[in-house]
Amino acid sequence: MGLVQDALAGDRRALARVISLVENGGPEGRAALAALHPHTGRAHVVGVTGGPGTGKSTLVNALAGVVRQRGITVGVLAVDPSSPFSGGALLGDRVRMRDLAGDAGVFIRSMATRGSLGGLAQATSDAVKVLDAAGFGLILVETVGAGQSELAIAGAAHTVVVVEAPGLGDEVQALKAGLLEIADILVVNKADLPGAAQAARALGMAADRGGAAGEAGKGGWRTPVLLTAALDGAGVPEVADAVVAHGEHLRARGMWAAHERERARAEFVDHLQRESFARLMAKVGQERVEGWVTRSATREVDAHTAARTVLSLGLACGEADVEREHSSSEGSDYF
């Protein structure tokens, strides 16, 4: 496959094309991923997440700048939401990343979620692999403006940076489960605004208290709380240092490999689910599936029974099995 070879050799146009193929999810994209797979596993993948307007893009811009000065190449994937109505999207993260323009050691790609929940697009992890194979040392993945449960980044990145800004909530917000718990590094951005030190203190206490369970899961890593003013770069080198330190921590504890394995498992299960679902649907046929949907909608059977029956239909070979399964499930599950 010429395109993949060109991308591996550093051709940026080929790289961009391969990301599109992977993002569009067709057979060409799958073939490209298979060819790239042996070249992956070298990059440090860092997620940058946090609420809308906290300064994620600005921090990514500043962080990438610092890391470039240290001679490491940087790939950026910036995810923004697709409209549930039109399917269109406005991808505006590049506006804040103009400092990185013209640097051949940086590659920035915007991605729309295309209906995926969890703060990332379905293909984000695959696009990470493409950048990884192309040799970028650090890959920054900026999620959509996250609420409290857009946590997909935790499974996709080695290190998660959660960005907060002053004035977004009281101490109770800092105690809630979810986003803060997945943070390996907490950043209070816009530290030049009033309330920043207070926010950092509240987050620091929350991070400490999450300690027992949290630290055990993180192999003794204590989540640092760092203050930045990303617009002028203050505090950003310290964030870069913390990212490096976290990477070293993961490797020293054998957690890097464990993380890779978990990610491989999650991807495998995900692909297995989608592939088996698609094959099942193809085997059972649209018409019969719709029939069961109708029966469920008209209260003839419940959705769970309908789903189990259709699954049995798909796994069984002939029509006879289908009918038997239907009547036996009526006998056992209904009453």
Binding site: A16, S20, L91, G92, V95, R98, A101, G102, S110
Partner: peptide, 22 residues
């Protein structure tokens, strides 16, 4: 899917962004 790049772009920046974003 609209990639918005903002003000004061040089032609070189625009070409590079078009390339990266395919």
């Amino acid at each position: 899917e609209v990639i918005y790049t903002g003000l004061r772009q040089t032609p070189e920046m625009i070409v590079e962004a078009a390339l990266q974003e395919d």
